[in-house]
Design a protein around this nucleic acid. Sequence first.
DNA 1: GTCATCACG
DNA 2: GACGTACGTGATGACC
Length: 930
Amino acid sequence: MSFGKGCHLHLIDGSAFIFRAYHALPPLTRKSDGLPIGAVSGFCNMLQRYVEGNAGGDVTHVAVVFDKGSHTFRNEMYDQYKANRDEMPEDLRPQIPLTRAATEAFNIACKEIEGFEADDIIATLACRAREAGGRVTILSSDKDLMQLVGDGVEMLDPMKNRRIDREGVLEKFGVEPDRVVDVQALAGDSVDNVPGAPGIGIKTAALLINEFGSLEALLDRAEEITQPKRRQTLIEHRAQIELSKRLVQLDCGMDLPFTLDDLEVREPEPDTLLGFLAEMEFRTLSKRIADALGAEPPVVMDTDPRGTEVEGPAEVPFTPEAYECVRDMDALQLWVERITERGYVAVDTETTGLNEMQADLVGICLAVEPGAACYIPVGHKAGGADDLFGSYALIEGQLALDDVLALLKPVLEDAAILKIGQNMKYDAKILARYGITVAPIDDTMLMSYAMNAGLHGHGMDALAERYLGHTPIPIKELIGSGKAQITFDRVDIDTATRYAAEDADITLRLWQRFKPQLHQTRVTTVYETLERPLVPVLAAMEMAGILVDRQVLSRMSGAFAQKMAQLEDEIHGLAGEKFNVGSPAQVGEILFERMGLEGGKRGKTGKYSTPADVLEDLATMHDLPARILDWRQVSKLKSTYTDALQDHIDPDTGRVHTSYLQTGASTGRLASTDPNLQNIPIRSEEGRRIREAFVAPEGKVLLALDYSQIELRILAHVAGIDALKEAFRDGQDIHAMTASEMFDVPMDQMTPDIRRRAKAINFGVIYGISGFGLARNLRIPRSEAQGFIDRYFERFPGIRGYMDETIGFAKEHGFVQTLFGRKIHTPEINAKGPGAGFAKRAAINAPIQGTAADVIRRAMVRMPAAIAGLPATMLLQVHDELLFEVDEEAADKVIAVAREVMEGAAEPAVRLDVPLIVDAGRGANWAQAH
DNA sequence: GTCATCACG
DNA sequence: GACGTACGTGATGACC
C-alpha cells in the first residue's frame, strides 16, 4: 500500500526504548557466554507488548528509529552539544547492535543514519507523512519531539500509555507546538547541554514568547522588556540563544535512503524471530511469542555450571560409533541417493599430507544431518618396516578409488547439490588432482570469518568447541607428532572412521548454525561476494604456481655463504672474541657489556634488545654493530629466501606453489604461507635480486600490476579530505603535495627530505598516528613529531573527525566496517591500559586496510572471466599487486584488460571520490616486471 | 613452544 | 599524570 490518506504511521524512538529497558531491568547476562543481555531482553519485551497491543489496530506503517554515531551536524555548530553526557555504560554497549538485530527479527523496519539523531529522522518522516495526508504517532516521551505535534501528529508515552496532543504540549511548554523550539531556545536544556538564556526557564520563556509572538520578534524588540535584568540577558546572549534554537530545531528535510512505503507493517517470520530469541536464550519470551505465532517453541541451549554449552534435548549427541564405514558400492549408492534427495552434503577429505600438490587421497567423508556421517576409505595401507621391500600395500576391504570417484563425481560437480566444507579450498585442490571440479560450495570457515573476524580463530577445533560445545578427536591421537608421526594412510580404518566422519559431522552442524546467522549479522553480501567466490580463484592460482629458477637461487646462496663467513671473521676480530652472531642475546652481551656501548635496553626476558634501529644508531660510533647489521641482512636473505625457496620447488611442476590463507588476517587481507610469497625482498638492492629467480617460461613474460597509493586514496575518500581527493584526481605527487601544504613549501621548491617527512606522516595517519611512533620513525624529538601531527590535522580537517568517529563506532558496536560491509571486530577497544591504545589504532587502520583488501578481492573474483580466452594466468597476489604469466604477444592486451578490472573493482557497489590507478610492468622475471 | 628479528604491503 | 605506542602479516634461528 502506498502511503497516503487513511494511513497511520508509528515512529518508535528506539534509543529511548533501549535506555528504558536498560534501567528498568537488573543486569542479566546470557548463560552460555556471559554476554550482557538485560537491555536486549527488556527491548524485546517492549517490542512484543507493542506488537500485541497493536494487533488488529489501524497502524499501517511502522519504524523503529535509532541514533547513530556520536558526532552529528549539531556538534559542528556547537562542540559542547551533549558534551556532558555520561559515557555509555560498559555492559550496555555490546547490546546496542543486538537491539537492531531484535528489531529486524520482529520484521519491523529499523532505521538509522550515520551522523544523525533519531529525532531528525523521526521529524522528517513525520513531516512527510503529514504532507501525504496520513496520521502519525510518535512513541516517545522525549520533549524535544513535542515540536512536531499537531495536524495529525501525536505522541504517545509508551511507559505511561499517555497520549500527548496539542493540549499536552501546551500544558508542558505553555505554548503551541510550533513555538516549542522558541521556548527551548530560551530555556536551554541541561540534559543536551543546550545553553539557552541564563536565568530563564520554561515558565519565563513561555511568558515572553506568548507576549511577543515568536523568538525572533522577542529578540528584535528586546529593548521593550521592562525587567532590566531580563532585558540585558536577552540582548547580551542573543547569539547564544539563536544558536540554541538551531540546536533544538529538528531537521524535517533530511534526505532519506528509503521511503514511507518501505515502512509498511509486516508480519514477523516465525523462524527468524524465534531463532533470534533462542540465540539470546530468552526462554519465557520465546514460549510466549511461539504461542502467539502458533509455532513450536525453539530449543534454547542450556548450560552447565562451568558455563560451557551442552546440547539441549533436541540436539543430537556426538556418537563416533554410529558413523558408517562404507565398504561396498551399494552402501555408497545409498549415500548418493540421500545426498541427491537432500540437495546438500558436508564433505571432508583425508590425505597423506598437508601439501595439496603432493598429498594423496586416503578417504572421503560425507555428512547429511547431525550424527549421520560416513567415511569411505580408499587408500589405507599396511606393511612397511617388516616388509621385504619396505613398501606398503593397500589394505583389503576398501572400495577402489576409481569406482568411488566415478560415483561421487556427478554429485560433487552437480550444480543442484551444495557441497559444504571447512576450508573447502584444501579439499577442492585435492579433488581437482583427481579430475573433479567441486561446485557449488559453502565453507564454514569463511562463514565464521565473515561474521566474526577479529573475535576468534576459524579453525574447526575452535569453532566446534565454541559453537557446538564439542572437542573433536585430536589428529595427534591418530598420527602422533614430531619424528614418530605417521601419515593418515597408515591409520587403522576403524579409528580413521571415527575421526574423519566426525569432521564432516561437525562441519554440517556448524553450517546449520551459521547459515541463518549470516543474514542476521548482515554479512551475507560479504560472504557471497568477497569470500565464497574467491575460493576457486585462489585454488587455481595456488595450483598454477610460479616458475622459480633453482640455479639462480643456488648461486646466490653460495655467494651469501662466502660473504657471511667473511663478515663473521671481521665481527669476531672487532669483538676480540668468537661468539654466535646469530644470537641476539650474545650480540647484546658483547655490545653492551664487553664493549660498554651506551643505550642498551633489556627486553622482557631480561636480555639486551638489539633490533636494527638500535644497531643503526650504534653504527655511528663503532664498526661492529654495522658489520652485525650486514651479517644479519645476508643471513636473512640466505636462510629465508635463497635456501628455503629451493626446498619449496615442487618436484613435479618445477614451480613454487604457495598457499593463501583466506581467513588469516582480520582485516580481509590474505596471508601467504609455505612459502610466504608476499614478503619476497624488494626494498634493498641486494634482496631485490632474489626476484630475478622468479621467472616466466620460454615465450612468456611476467606482468605485475599494482594499485598506486590505494590506502591513501581510500583514506581521502572515507575521511572526506578534499585537498587529498583533488590531488589524486589531478594525478599529483601526493606526498609532495602533503609536504607543500604542511610546511608551506611551494611544489617547485620541494626537497626530498621534506617530502620524506610528509610521506612518513601520510603513512602514520593510516596506522593511527601517535607522536611517539612518528618520532621514532623519523628520528626526531617527540615534541617536533607531535607538532607535525597537529599541523597535519589542522591542514586536513576531517582526519580527526574520521578517527574519532571510527573509534566511537568501534566502542559502540564492538567492530568497525569496510566500505563493502566487511566487519572487523575490536574486542579490546573498551579495555583500559595499553591494550586500548593498540585497539584504537587497529580500529582506525582496519577500515582502510580492509577496504583496500576488499577492492583487490573483487578484482580477483572478476579476473578469471575477464581474461578467459587470453593466454594468461593469474599467479600471485601481494596485497595491492597481482602477478600474471602471459604469452609475450598478448602482454599488452592482458595489461589493458586486467587494469580495467582492477581500476573498476570498487564499482558498482562503491563509487569512490578518487580514481584508483594501476601501474603495470612486464619482464622475464619478477624484478624486471616491477 | 616462545622470543627476537626482519622480510613484505 | 602515567602508560607505552605506529597497521597487518610469516619464517627463521636461538634458546628453554
